[in-house]
């Protein structure tokens, strides 16, 4: 699971009001290089909750992202490189995503988060 996906997930347990962002408990993190595409990054930037991304990256050991970001920063190659790495190259392979309100854990196994709810959570 990339941090882009983490940025799109929230806890949807019945009754939970603020299910985002999910806290990450990491057991295994891997890095996979992919080609940097500036157009994609510029396009996706406005869809990203920045603080959630920078906090998630930091929790996985990558502290290079600023705490806040604005669109003009996309003109910097250095910024694009860091954004690209955090968003697309860091993968949570094993661990859990934790609901910020209830502490309920959604396991991540072989890079796949289990977002299925139990019957009493729907």
């Amino acid at each position: 699971m990339r941090l882009l996906t983490h940025n799109m997930l929230s806890s949807n347990i019945k009754g939970v009001v603020n299910g985002f962002p999910l806290r990450i408990e990491a057991e295994k993190v891997i890095h996979k290089e992919v080609d940097l595409n500036p157009d994609f990054l510029r396009n996706i930037f406005s869809k990203i909750e920045w603080r959630a991304l920078s906090d998630a990256a930091r929790s996985l050991g990558y502290a290079e992202l600023p705490e806040e970001a604005e669109e003009s920063m996309l003109d910097s190659d250095e910024f694009l490189g860091k954004f690209h790495h955090a968003l697309l190259e860091i993968h949570l392979e094993e661990g859990a995503l934790v609901c910020p309100e209830t502490g309920r854990k959604f396991s991540v196994s072989k890079g796949i988060p289990n977002m299925l709810l139990h019957e009493d959570e729907v």
Partner: peptide, 20 residues
């Protein structure tokens, strides 16, 4: 490559992926 999720339709994505 694609990102994979164990989900019921799009459970977990409803809020943040809405309109995207």
């Amino acid at each position: 490559e694609a990102e994979l999720l164990l989900a019921d339709i799009a459970s977990g994505l409803e809020d943040r992926l809405a309109g995207k």
